[in-house]
Simulated scan of single mutants.
Amino acid sequence: MNDMLRQIEPLIPALRRYARTLLRDRAGADDLVQDCLERAVNHWSQRRDDNPRAWIFTILHNLAITRLRSSASRPRHIAIDDAQEETFARAPSQEDGLRYRELLEAVARLPEDQKSVLLLATVEGLSYAETAGVLGVPIGTVMSRLSRARERLLKERDGDRGAQPVAQLRRVK
């Protein structure tokens, strides 16, 4: 039991980060992590590796996909007493805050397969092999989805500058 706790406890902040990014809801993400940890503890003997990181992220990812699919069919309800102040506050006027929000929105607009690969491989630091294991796809698919996600984010970021003509260098004889 102590060995299990020693291996799971350091993963909790990363699990919360990944869940919050997927769900974009703090309370829902915390509930998702709790459900994930409950499953991990109950099925601890079923893991196949000494390092449970990828296994636990797989559980979290599968639970998140199930939750997102089921919540897509019904409207989201937030009680006004439970709503956080940021929900009603104005966007920050600082440039960094705006860039951060734009980045989060751009990541949210990515297709689900690209978003998951991007978050697992870059934010959570999973290897391509671990990411492939979590998502149940080949490593080549992980690399191509990651490449497409990065390319799409760069295009969105440079969208305004992309319309300007680029100076061509010519050879002068």
Score class of each variant (00 low, 15 high):
Pro13Gly: 11
Ile80Leu: 15
Ala79Ser: 13
Ile59Met: 14
Glu95Val: 15
Ala163Val: 12
Ala106Ile: 01
Gly125Asp: 04
Ser127Thr: 15
Glu85Met: 10
Arg69Gln: 14
Ala108Ser: 10
Ser127Val: 08
Gly162Ser: 12
Leu98Cys: 05
Asp25Leu: 03
Lys155Met: 11
Gly97His: 03
Arg76Glu: 11
Leu135Ile: 06
Gly140Met: 06
Arg171Pro: 00
Ala64Ser: 13
Val137Asn: 00
Phe57Lys: 01
Val172Trp: 14
Tyr18Glu: 04
Leu15Met: 10
Pro52Glu: 03
Arg53Ala: 10
Ile8Lys: 02
Asp113Leu: 05
Arg6Thr: 11
Asn42Gln: 08
Leu119Ala: 13
Leu169Tyr: 08
Ala19Ser: 13
Arg152Ala: 14
Ala132Thr: 01
Leu5Asp: 14
Glu105His: 09
Ile59Trp: 01
Arg76Asn: 05
Arg161Thr: 08
Ile12Gly: 02
Ala163Arg: 15
Ile12His: 01
Asn42Pro: 00
Arg17Cys: 06
Trp55Ser: 00
Gly28Gln: 11
Arg53His: 01
Asp31Thr: 00
Thr66Arg: 15
Ile78Asp: 05
Arg69Ala: 13
Lys115Ala: 13
Gln164Asp: 10
Val107Gln: 12
Leu11His: 08
Leu119Cys: 12
Asp158Lys: 04
Arg17Gln: 12
Arg99Gln: 10
Phe88Val: 14
Leu98Ala: 12
Leu110Gln: 06
Lys173Asn: 02
Gly159Arg: 14
Ser45Asn: 03
Leu118Ala: 10
Pro111Gly: 05
Arg157Trp: 07
Ala167Tyr: 03
Leu135Glu: 03
